[in-house]
Simulated assay, not measured.
Amino acid sequence: MKKILMAKVSSTILEACIGAKEGEKILIVTEPEKLLISESIATIAYQMKAEPIISIIVPRENDGQEPPQPIAEAMKSSDAFICVVGKSITHTHAVKNAIANGSRGIVMTQFSEDMMIHGGMQADFKQLKPICMSMAKALENGKEIRLTTPYGTDLSFSAEGRRGNALYCMVEKGEFSTAPTVEANVSPIEGTANGKIVADASVPYIGIGLLDEPIYLDVNNGRITSISGGRQAKILREDLEFKNDENVYNIAELGVGLNPSCRFIGLMLEDEGVYGSVHIGIGTNITLGGNVKAACHYDLIMTQPTIVVDGRTVLKDGEVVL
């Protein structure tokens, strides 16, 4: 029954998100636990007279770990690819190279079967596109960007010369987007971020999910220098220490969630898309316009944020004011 109910969103992914065409080779990269979702998408692709290819990989040990080289090559040579995985392969050279070669991709990390029936994928992506693009343009090339929240976040950085990225779940040749999150983001210039981050909503990685209490992080010269809080803060701190990679502490991204159909459920691409939320990405930034490749990319999500770019308020207490 679930496969039937998932058909509507599968059609949205293929028709609205990647614009699949007859004869195109659509590569679906997946894991054993996500096979029902992948088969639903492949069924619709076949009905559209595209050529679906399902490639099952062993789940990556860490988010941000590269997929096997044959999969990376297949992504690069595909007309379009869809990643239906539990462990993220978004911030990888495989995705970056596939896009550079002209493929187009939709990334569905931590997608559940329920998300194929309810939630963020029910949004009108065409309607949200101009809002997302406007926010990305507002963040682009910001010489001084300041993020604050009522919970104690106060972070400033420069994104001068950096592009703004608009991810609205619809892609053309040479583009990728996450789904169902609709977000605008920018990658800070390495070494420029300073202040404090207080994540109060979610850290949808390594089993943390929805936060029981805030996680507090100090940032100096572009890197996290301390992490404090309760049980969940300890999980994050110990995981990053275990990576034994200084780049995991890099402030990699400021992202603004813009999907009114998303809700906080403890899963990555649903939580990050919640309208009016903001996430600070840490670690890898190579797919966002930066040059750091780390052992992971995690997002720290907060609510009621205010963003000021070069003196202009673009987000006020979680409401877009462009």
Rank of each mutant, 00 (worst) to 15 (best):
55 S>N: 03
77 S>E: 12
146 R>S: 00
229 G>Q: 12
74 A>P: 08
251 I>N: 05
4 I>P: 00
157 F>D: 01
151 Y>N: 11
72 A>H: 06
303 T>A: 04
160 E>N: 03
49 K>D: 04
146 R>H: 11
161 G>I: 02
196 K>G: 06
258 L>P: 09
293 K>I: 09
234 K>R: 12
97 N>R: 12
210 L>F: 04
313 T>I: 14
167 L>N: 11
152 G>D: 07
35 L>P: 04
163 R>Y: 12
147 L>S: 05
210 L>M: 15
248 V>W: 04
177 S>A: 12
302 M>C: 04
202 S>I: 13
288 L>Q: 09
198 V>R: 05
145 I>L: 08
189 I>F: 04
118 H>Y: 15
93 H>I: 10
62 N>V: 09
195 G>V: 14
74 A>C: 08
247 N>M: 05
244 N>K: 15
293 K>G: 03
199 A>P: 14
317 D>C: 11
136 A>H: 00
284 T>H: 08
24 E>R: 02
54 I>N: 11
178 T>Q: 13
321 V>W: 08
262 C>D: 15
174 G>L: 09
161 G>S: 01
56 I>H: 06
90 T>W: 02
190 E>M: 06
84 V>E: 04
158 S>C: 09
271 D>Q: 15
178 T>E: 15
139 L>R: 08
235 I>S: 03
145 I>N: 08
186 V>L: 00
69 Q>P: 01
118 H>S: 11
294 A>D: 04
234 K>I: 07
260 P>T: 07
164 G>M: 10
37 I>S: 02
3 K>I: 10
316 K>S: 14
163 R>V: 14
320 V>F: 11
303 T>S: 04
203 V>T: 02
138 A>N: 13
218 D>G: 03
91 H>W: 06
232 Q>E: 02
320 V>E: 05
26 I>V: 12
150 P>E: 01
28 I>M: 00
9 V>R: 01
152 G>R: 10
77 S>H: 08
28 I>E: 02
124 D>P: 08
54 I>K: 15
100 A>K: 07
228 S>W: 03
46 Y>N: 15
201 A>M: 13
25 K>A: 05
37 I>A: 04
311 G>V: 01
131 I>D: 00
78 S>H: 00
82 I>T: 09
274 V>F: 13
287 T>W: 04
116 M>I: 07
240 L>E: 03
222 G>D: 11
121 M>R: 10
132 C>Y: 03
69 Q>S: 07
305 P>C: 13
218 D>Q: 09
